[in-house]
Design a binder for these strands. Structure first.
Length: 259
DNA sequence: ATGGCTATTCAAAATAGA
């Protein structure tokens, strides 16, 4: 089963590029972030006509996550537990049954800039809630993954120019420590389990010719529980579509799971 | 880069992104 994460930066703006990528990459499941749409306005027919079931957790203008799946989605839940006052649409979960069941968590972790400040506090608080949910998945010994736009550059090798990001909410020490607290519970970064070294990015800014200079960062990740990591067969970053017409500033990252 | 681009929104400039 090919499972991808893709921050599309607006479903309306990606009404051509996203179906084009689906048709060529043929993922079984896609976890989408930044749909920037309410549920009622999401163009589900674009995906249903390609054989995908669509589940959204949308919000007006900003944020918003969704799941597309060729197999039925079961037990769908919306919103990251731990703060009933949080109105931002950044988390969705569902179960898909292949040979075995796998729990899929799609997430759009807060950017957090400027740091320090209230937005950064929100990011760190959100990550603490994420850690709690992650621990539950481990405690249940589930075949599960948490994938999405983490807005975290894990290591210097994950940025073309790490020094430019030192004080940024995506790379400052506190952010990376919070990310490691989650990974170190026992998760596997799917991409890094298979590919080492610098030069692998999932985001290039629209500004300043970042794409042409390959000035990117790796911030979209799939974290696997041990039971899921046992089934990991392949990974990839579909970098080339960043150079196509009307691209998102992110590209898809995927994992092939033997399930 | 204290923002060079893109997307969104009660439709013009503001907000957000990373």
């Amino acid at each position: 089963m090919k499972i991808a994460t893709f921050n599309i930066n607006g479903i309306k703006a990606r009404a051509a590029a996203l179906p084009d990528w689906l048709d060529s990459a043929q993922p079984d499941v896609v976890l989408l972030q930044e749909i920037k749409s309410v549920d009622e306005a999401f163009p589900r027919e674009l995906f249903e006509e390609r054989g995908y079931q669509v589940e959204t957790h949308g919000q007006k203008s900003f944020n918003g996550v969704a799941i597309l799946s060729k197999l039925p989605l079961e037990d769908v839940t919306r919103g990251l537990p731990g703060d009933d006052s949080d109105e931002q649409a950044r988390w969705i979960e569902a179960t898909v049954v292949g040979k075995q069941a796998i729990r899929l968590c799609g997430l759009y972790l807060p950017n957090g800039n400027p740091a320090p400040g209230p937005k950064y506090d929100y990011k760190l608080g959100w990550m603490e809630r994420l850690r709690a949910r992650a621990q539950q998945l481990l405690d249940g010994e589930e075949i599960a993954l948490m994938a999405g736009d983490y807005n975290i550059i894990p290591q210097a090798e994950d940025a073309k120019r790490p020094d430019a990001w030192r004080e940024d909410a995506l790379f400052r020490l506190e952010s990376r420590e919070a990310f490691r607290r989650i990974v170190n519970l026992g998760f596997t970064d799917a991409f890094r389990a298979r590919v080492g070294g610098p030069g692998h990015y999932s985001f290039w800014d629209y500004q300043a010719g970042a794409w042409n200079r390959d000035d990117g960062i790796r911030i979209d990740h799939l974290l696997l529980t041990p039971q899921c990591a046992d089934l990991l067969r392949d990974v990839g970053i579909d970098k080339e579509i960043r150079g196509f017409d009307k691209p998102s500033d992110h590209v898809p990252v995927w994992a092939e799971i033997d399930i």
